[in-house]
Design a protein around this nucleic acid. Structure first.
Length: 585
RNA sequence: GGGAUCGUAGUUCAGUUGGUUAGAACGCCGGCCUGUCAAGCCGGAGGUCGAGAGUUCGAGUCUCUUCGGUCCCGCCA
């Protein structure tokens, strides 16, 4: 092997006449009989190397056999390209390397797909040969962005006095929250560890231990169903701080977020970040993670539909609308498609009207007399050529359904500028949600979230109305971080457990160590966790979490490359004392 | 748990109302070619139409079952 003296992205006019060595993969071959051009590639770039049968010292026939993704080591001389042969699309396009000798380090088997074109294979094939897909420009760039994001996080937090501390990966299974991944214990038959859904309890205990400002870039595991932005194992930037309130968390985390976006994308985020309450976010955007890059606000139009002849909405708790400027171009077919779309969110249908000659037409317009039309037009500012979409139902149906429609329409109309980043704090979440299936309250954030100071008495009388000290940081319609000020009083912690239907006994068994720790001088504390993968998705402009993870799993939690999960030997099962039940069918 | 959608050559796709020998491009193999950069030109090999069952004289095409990918609802404190 000729050990490389330069990388494939490095050579310029300054290097002309130098004898150099390059190592890399054959990106493309252009064969012209007695002269052969090859673009040699490594992660730094591409350089054109030229084999000329008159100058080349080795076996020219062997060079003719080279194909894409063979691995080469070459010795040659940098030369300028003749005028007209310069390639302005390559950073090394002004030079080329005349090869003197070459060693074929590794010959590739026939490729399952073409590396230079990521779209040339379906995703399952690309995942099976992930090491090949990782050679593509796009994934190389994403993985590098991920790397730089780790470094930006570590340097900012470390510079601000945060201490990086590792917490266990084998921990105790706890009730509440997502399903745990379980790990059987060989030494303790019949007992299991759980993989952490997050290091929540450990980081609170670190505050009690006096570490004051903690962070960790940490893998978390949740055994639920997956989506374009959800993997069974994912990474969090986990942060906890002592002697703080919400404002301290906001200012520190805004600093971190601004630092990341400046370092990675040279973007200046606002200072401070805007805030909205959970209730307002739902009322105005129909979402607890609103994309504020565009308007399309939800309007309350119940007073107008109540005055109309359209009776279906008379009994509805809530009737809301969004107006799409220029939306009158939408055909019946498109509107039917949008109707099917909102039905996924439990809406029974989607009504609409179009602005035309200062009046409303189509859809349910005939149920609105002239006065009513003009009042509605005035209130919602419908103009000629616009369309208004209306949904009436329970408030808990109307807002999410219209919110989803708002996002769908923005996508259709290209309203979300990918180069704009709009952070937004969402605050004042309800403390509890009522779970109709389990017939009990569950924590909206988690059971360690402190109730709002003014609402503590209402824990007894009206739990549903209690607001928490939780907060989410959203950006462009994604939740990028979520956290809360924690409970640091053992009494209130026990009170919340009991409201969640955990008996004192259960609470003691599952979380007793935390409650006990709280009795030994717990500082007021709070924290947050960023979804690291989602953050990198936003930074890279990806819309798929698999594009920012080196070795991702499919939506059915399978790794197609190494075929995990898989069966284990009966000996392994025996040691663990585990017997596999036959399939249900 | 539910819904939608996709599965045809190594790969990406086309394949009509069910009808003869399932096509194209890229890749691969062979040949020509000294200035290309998605090189070009000529030739060739390559198919269990995801799997299974059914309807039919006849199935890539219709029906059912099943496996896998993707997207979504539920779920994800």
């Amino acid at each position: 092997m000729y050990k490389r003296t330069h990388t494939c992205g490095e050579l310029r006019k300054d290097h002309i006449d130098e004898t150099i060595h390059l190592n890399g993969w054959v990106n493309t071959v252009r064969l012209h009989g007695q002269v052969i051009f090859i673009d040699l590639r490594d992660r730094y770039g591409k350089t054109q190397i030229v084999f000329n049968s008159e100058d080349y010292n080795g076996d020219f026939v062997a060079v003719k056999k080279l194909s894409m993704e063979d691995v080469l080591s070459i010795k040659g001389t940098v030369q300028s390209r003749s005028e007209g042969a310069v390639n302005p699309d390559m950073s090394t396009g002004e030079i080329e390397v005349a090869v003197d000798s070459m060693e074929l380090l590794s010959e590739t088997a026939p490729l399952p797909f073409v590396i230079t074109d990521r779209e040339s294979a379906l995703e399952d094939l690309r995942l099976k040969y992930r090491y090949l897909e990782l050679r593509t420009d796009e994934l190389q760039k994403n993985i590098l962005t991920r790397h730089k994001t780790y470094q930006a996080v570590r340097s900012y937090l470390s510079d601000n006095n945060f201490v990086e501390i590792e917490t266990p990966t084998l921990m105790k299974s706890t009730p509440e929250g997502a399903r745990d991944f379980l790990v059987p214990s060989r030494i303790h038959h019949g007992k299991f560890y759980a993989l952490p859904q997050s290091p929540q309890l450990y980081k609170q205990i670190l505050m009690i231990s006096g570490f004051d400002r903690y962070f960790q870039i940490v893998k978390c595991f949740r055994d639920e169903d997956f989506r374009a932005d959800r993997q069974p194992e994912f990474t969090q930037i986990d942060v906890e701080m002592s002697f703080v309130d919400e404002e301290d968390i906001y200012s520190n985390m805004e600093g971190l977020t601004r630092h990341i976006f400046k370092e990675l994308n040279d973007v200046d985020l606002p200072d401070p970040f805007p805030r909205i309450t959970y209730a307002d976010a739902l009322a105005k955007y129909g979402s607890d993670k609103p994309d504020t890059r565009y308007e399309l606000f939800l309007n309350d139009v119940k007073e107008f539909t109540d005055r109309s002849e359209f009776n279906a909405f008379k009994s509805a708790e809530s009737v809301k609308a969004i107006v799409l400027p220029g939306g009158a171009k939408y055909s019946r077919k498109i509107i039917d498609g949008l109707t099917d779309f909102v039905k996924k969110y439990k809406a029974k249908g989607l009504t609409w009207m179009k602005g035309e000659n200062g009046k409303l037409s189509g859809g349910i317009a005939k149920f609105f007399d002239e006065n009513l039309q003009s009042d509605l037009i005035h209130a919602t500012e419908i103009k000629d050529g616009d369309i208004i979409f209306i949904i009436g139902d329970e408030k808990t149906v109307v807002e999410p359904a219209l919110g989803a429609l708002r996002v769908e329409i923005a996508k259709r109309e290209g309203l979300a500028d990918p180069n704009i980043y709009k952070p937004l704090w969402v605050t004042s979440f309800p403390m509890f949600e009522y779970d109709e299936v389990e017939n009990r309250y569950t924590a909206m954030h988690h059971p360690f979230t402190a109730p709002h100071q003014d609402d503590i008495e209402k824990l007894e009388t009206d739990p549903a109305s209690v607001l928490s000290r939780g907060y989410d940081l959203t950006m462009n319609g994604h939740e990028i971080a979520g956290g809360s000020i924690r409970i640091h009083s053992p009494e209130i912690q026990n009170k919340v457990f009991s409201l969640l239907g955990l008996s004192l006994e259960d609470a003691k068994e599952k979380f007793g160590f935390l409650v006990e720790a709280l009795t030994y001088g717990a500082p007021p504390h709070g924290g947050i966790a960023f979804g690291f993968d989602r953050l990198v998705m936003i930074l890279t402009g990806s819309n798929n979490i698999r594009d920012v993870i080196a070795f991702p799993k499919t939506t059915s939690a399978v790794s197609l490359m190494d075929d995990a999960p898989n069966t284990v030997s009966s000996q392994q099962l025996n040691e663990l004392g585990i017997q596999i039940k036959p399939d249900k069918n």
